[in-house]
Nucleic acid binder design. Structure first.
Lengths: 325, 325
DNA sequence: CATATTTTTTTACAAATGTAAATTTGAAAG
DNA sequence: CTTTCAAATTTACATTTGTAAAAAAATATG
């Protein structure tokens, strides 16, 4: 096996060979066969080396997110809503029929991953919510080592069929950024307001809530107020509570809090049973990235935009079109 | 960063489509055919889009250079010569016959490009020499925007058949780094020492020489003292001058200056007719990257290493083996 | 020392990709 | 409205690439 004639078989040398092969292929533009001939192995071995190089992160393929924030539609969004940046994902040509929800979500997640890399700077404290959208983002995010970043879970945990483990969102994103992760060791919702209040004063939880008051970056999505919205599906709010909130004017749900059309918080049940970041603390963050996909979120996104909760927006193209019109 | 910024408005959208296609392909792992079907165009169009994305730098494929500095042989180099880092390029398996000079140089150039990215930090002033090796490096270097970097040409210009335009080395490297470039508006060699001295006091040239006294990073190669060495081939030194220097113990040539085996400068003709950085000023730089390829440079590289002129080394594998033995 | 077990490499084939020439599209000029 | 030219797109084909399953090496086991 060690056709590497020179003595020693340390692991660093294998990496070096991997790296040099990757260089010949991606950098120099040689074909796999040419490299195989040079290195005197079969082409399949080169294929394997290249894959290993990619998997191990020795080769990194990055798509520049800046251009996604440079299109006309994103400029329209920025000027209309006073945003710092807007990223628009696009998954298929118009007139090709609508993309499936999962198709569109996956593509948005990739774009959002890049948006996060653009937005997060060394040394930042980053709050991460959870939900279907954020979960997709956490899984699609590319790796990039940042220095001194802290990631904090913004909403207590919950078991739901759509999001198996809610801590996982923050943990994965922290992992991709090479950051430390602070999770919130509490359920998202408790059976009584009193118990929630007690928990909020528990040292470990209080410490986390304090961190959440001083975020540099907040990353979150928004739910709509349809009867099957995630808040209800996850068992955090009861259907009748949602109905009451809707009657009171609720148009969107951010971090388990209801928002009216103007983006103001509506403090209805189960609001005081929740352990999560407060909307006002999100507003305190310098950069507030809202990630949303799907036409049915338009009203909810608009509520967030009106309330000044958003500084950076990441949406799919159909939703972007709805928002500018 | 070039945030599109202009009236046309259409170019940004095209970029966005490009970027999204690249994302589907490189990020999501879809095949070109799948993307073509989704976007309702032919697959060939996708191929073109992907190529354009790569050419325009929207997609970036990077190979991590760190692993090249992690192999046993590079560790041996570091400890034997007290280097901060050593990069070793490898282009074919041993026993497959020696690589051609240009093959080996091209591969080394790629590795050197990554070494430069590793070594240069935001805000640095970087001195760049010129020559066959440096030219290859400048052409193989990947793009990466650094902030506030200044690149300075370390040797006056010269027309030679091996290196058509000497300024080009510094300019290209500056370009790849997104840095400003200060060229040295003087010939490398002048007909008399007096004229050289006069030129050195010319304001624009004096200013550049002053910058060269305060480099953070110096990037250079080393020539050997064979009769056809570049210094002679480029017409900077006369054959008889080289012969004299060799008699005096010259073993290598760095930035047009002769070095003896201990790495000390030998001030023989045409030394005082040269307009270029001084060896001592290179030594002042915190990081001093020597890039060299080919067994025939072993003695010259050893001279540099002995003289403490080098902190970071980038060589091909055969040369590395010679150096450690 | 032979034999199981794992890992790595290879062979052979199907799928995906790149390319050049032909075609269409779009814009500018007559 | 037609003609002309350039750019973009498609078609058809040759090449390159990924992936099985088979073979060979290395490692571990009795």
């Amino acid at each position: 096996m060690p056709r590497d004639g020179s003595a020693s078989g340390k692991s660093g040398d294998k990496d070096r060979i991997l790296s040099n092969v990757a260089l010949l292929y991606y950098g120099e533009g040689l074909t796999q066969s040419e490299i195989a001939k040079r290195m005197d192995v079969s082409r399949a071995t080169i294929v394997n080396m290249l894959r290993e190089g990619r998997e191990r992160g020795i080769v990194e393929i990055r798509v520049d997110g800046a251009v996604l924030a440079a299109s006309t539609i994103s400029r329209q969004l920025c000027s209309k809503f006073g945003l710092a940046d807007a990223y628009v994902s696009r998954s298929r040509a118009e007139g090709t029929g609508p993309a499936t929800r999962s198709e569109s979500l996956a593509q948005l997640a990739r774009v959002a991953g890049m948006a996060i890399l653009d937005v997060v700077e060394d040394g930042n404290t980053v709050g991460v919510a959870w939900g279907e959208t954020i979960k997709a983002v956490s899984e699609a995010m590319p790796f990039e080592r940042a220095k001194g970043v802290e990631v904090c879970q913004m909403i207590g945990s919950m078991v739901s069929d759509r999001v198996p483990a809610s801590e996982d969102c923050a943990i994965k994103i922290a992992n991709r950024l090479g950051a430390v992760c602070f999770t919130l060791h509490a359920p998202a919702v408790l059976s009584s307001a009193a118990l929630a209040e007690t928990l909020r004063t528990e040292p470990t939880i209080a410490a986390q809530l304090q961190r959440l008051e001083q975020l540099d970056v907040a990353i979150f999505s928004v739910g709509n107020t349809a009867p099957d919205t995630h808040l209800v599906a996850a068992g955090i709010a009861k259907p009748e509570e949602l109905t009451a909130a809707v009657s009171a004017g609720a148009k969107g749900i951010v971090c388990c809090r209801y928002l009216d059309a103007a983006g103001h918080k509506i403090s209805l049940a189960p609001d005081d049973q929740i352990v999560a970041v407060d909307i006002d603390h999100i507003k305190n963050a310098r950069k507030r990235l809202l990630i949303a996909s799907g036409d049915d979120r338009a009203e909810a996104v608009l509520a967030c935009l009106s309330g000044g909760i958003v500084s950076h927006l990441c949406v799919d193209e159909p939703l972007a079109n709805l928002l500018v019109s």
